[in-house]
Simulated scan of single mutants.
Amino acid sequence: MSERTVVVTGAAGFIGRWVVSELLDRGVTIRGLDDFSNGSRENIAEFDDERFSIVDGDVRDRTVVESLFDDEVDACIHLAAEIDVQESLDDPMDHFQTNVVGTQNVLEACREQETRLGLVGTCMVYDMLNAGEGIDEDHPVKPASPYAGSKLASENMAESYYHGYDLPVTILRPFNTYGPFQKTGMAGGVVSIFVDRDLDDRTLKIFGDGTQTRDLLYATDCARFIVDATFSDDTVGEVINAGTGEEISINDLADLVATEGTDIEHVEHHHPQSEVQRLQCDPSKARDLLGWTPEVSLQEGVDRLRTWMRNGEP
Rank of each mutant, 00 (worst) to 15 (best):
D263L: 13
V227A: 01
T259H: 14
V257A: 08
T262A: 01
I250T: 12
A229C: 09
I250N: 15
A258T: 00
A258S: 01
A258N: 00
T262R: 10
G245F: 02
S249I: 03
V257M: 08
D255A: 14
A254H: 09
N241L: 01
S249G: 10
L256S: 15
D252S: 15
V239H: 13
T244F: 01
G261F: 01
E238G: 09
E246P: 05
F231Q: 05
E247A: 13
N251A: 09
T262Y: 06
A258F: 04
I240A: 13
E247H: 08
V257F: 03
I240V: 14
A242F: 13
I250Y: 14
T244L: 03
I264P: 10
A242G: 06
L253M: 00
V227Q: 04
N241R: 05
D233Y: 04
D228Y: 12
D233L: 00
I240P: 11
D233W: 03
G243C: 06
A229R: 09
N241A: 04
N251Q: 10
D252R: 15
T244G: 00
T230Y: 05
A229V: 09
G237T: 07
T230M: 05
T230E: 07
S249C: 12
A242Q: 09
G261S: 02
N241Y: 08
D255M: 14
T262S: 07
A229Y: 08
G261M: 03
S232Q: 02
D228E: 12
D234P: 10
N251R: 11
V236S: 06
S249K: 05
V236Q: 04
D252W: 14
V239G: 07
G261W: 04
E238V: 10
G261V: 00
S232V: 05
D228L: 09
A258V: 00
T230V: 08
D252L: 11
V227N: 05
T235C: 11
T259V: 10
L256W: 07
V227P: 09
E247R: 15
E247G: 07
I248E: 02
A242T: 12
V236R: 02
I248D: 07
V236M: 01
T244R: 08
N241S: 01
I264T: 15
E247F: 05
S249H: 12
D255N: 15
V236W: 02
V257H: 04
L253R: 02
T262H: 05
S249A: 10
A242V: 11
S232M: 03
L253I: 00
L256Y: 11
E260T: 08
T235H: 08
A254E: 09
D255S: 15
V236C: 00
T262F: 05
I240C: 12
